[in-house]
Nucleic acid binder design. Structure first.
Length: 154
DNA sequence: GCCAACGTTGGC
DNA sequence: GCCAACGTTGGC
């Protein structure tokens, strides 16, 4: 099993949205950065993904989801009415990928960026570096478990 | 709302 | 292929 962290603006898609539909996976779409897309494409079934809420009141890791469907062409890139529409993308050669994920757990409290920065395990994680914009990134098992431990005590 | 950091675009 | 201009991200 691999571990990942993925950013989202909770106004658009939050851990609550996953929690509200525990039996129905949601599509993780709208990734429009090549490095992030390449990581997204590497996700495998049952990989665990930390959900990070950005650009919001409570910035930080809010919970965990699981991959239920590996990468497939992101339909929003073909939809002219979508904010994620990409004119240069074609059905034959799609640029962007999406995956499906389902709810695993929501932390009682968002693990804030400030607290995340106290974890020495995350020193090499792009997340805590100034100016970082990568929205999907791999985590080592020790990174994942350090976050889980700080969030839940487990 | 501000602004630094970064990725992408496009002229050359 | 370089690089300046531009648009976006994202914390504060």
């Amino acid at each position: 099993m691999n571990y990942w962290l993925a950013k989202t603006e909770p106004d658009e898609c939050s851990i609550r949205d996953f929690a509200n539909t525990p039996d129905t996976p949601l599509r993780w779409d709208g990734v429009r950065n090549y490095q992030a897309r390449n990581y997204l494409a590497k996700m495998q079934l049952k990989d665990r993904v930390l959900v990070y809420h950005s650009s919001c009141k409570q910035i930080g890791v809010a919970g965990i989801v699981e991959v239920t469907k590996t990468a497939y062409p992101d339909p929003t890139q073909f939809d002219p009415t979508s904010v994620y529409y990409d004119q240069k993308s074609t059905e034959n050669e799609p640029r962007w990928q999406a995956v499906d994920m389902r709810f695993i757990e929501e932390f009682n409290d968002v693990l804030t960026l400030k607290n995340l920065k106290t974890l020495t395990e995350l020193n090499d994680c792009p997340l805590v570096k100034p100016g970082n914009r990568l929205s999907v990134m791999p985590l080592s098992a020790s990174m994942f478990h350090a976050v889980l431990n700080l969030a839940t005590g487990r």
